[in-house]
């Protein structure tokens, strides 16, 4: 991990396949399961589930980067903030039409599935939740 400077937060976003981001930021806002929360340097240690949503990385008062995650885990420890996400993409790579299509596909899949098993149904419902969150994030951004 990079040497933590005193007034910046060391933030790492890790996916199973690679490290997606490793930056020093002034603040990072994370979509926690029970609501968004901002993490500044020297935040109290915390473990939280994430819901599908947008991670915003602040440099100064400005949002520097916005990254969409499909859920995961956030850990705040004295060294910084670590987010483990199974799937993540920068907002600039997402597109509203595609997101709408994904939602439609997911809803159709669930509609078409005859008598899905419990885990199967959960998976499909989750895909819908993720797709909705993606659309919401894109519309909010305008």
């Amino acid at each position: 991990m990079a040497e933590a400077s005193t007034d910046k937060l060391a933030f790492e976003l890790v996916s199973p396949e690679r490290v997606l981001a490793s930056v020093q930021a002034d603040m990072v806002v994370v979509p926690g399961e029970e609501g968004d929360f901002g993490v500044l340097v020297e935040h109290a240690p915390l473990l939280s589930l994430l819901r599908p949503g947008v991670i915003s990385i602040y440099q100064g008062q400005q949002v520097d980067q916005r990254i969409f995650v499909e859920g995961g885990f956030a850990e705040v420890n004295p060294k910084g903030l670590i987010v483990l996400a199974e799937a993540a993409a920068p907002m600039t790579e997402l597109n509203l039409d595609e997101a709408r299509q994904q939602l439609k596909d997911a809803e159709e899949d669930l509609g078409d599935a005859k008598d899905p098993s419990e885990p199967e149904r959960e998976r499909l419902e989750r895909a819908i939740v993720v797709a909705r969150a993606r659309i919401e994030a894109l519309e909010f951004q305008g």
């Binding site: 926690g32 399961e33 029970e34 240690p45 915390l46 473990l47 939280s48 589930l49 420890n77 004295p78």
Partner: peptide
């Protein structure tokens, strides 16, 4: 006291 807070709770996570 650098003990973790858990959100929502340990078992869910």
């Amino acid at each position: 006291g650098a003990i973790y807070e858990f959100e929502p709770d340990e078992e869910r996570i």
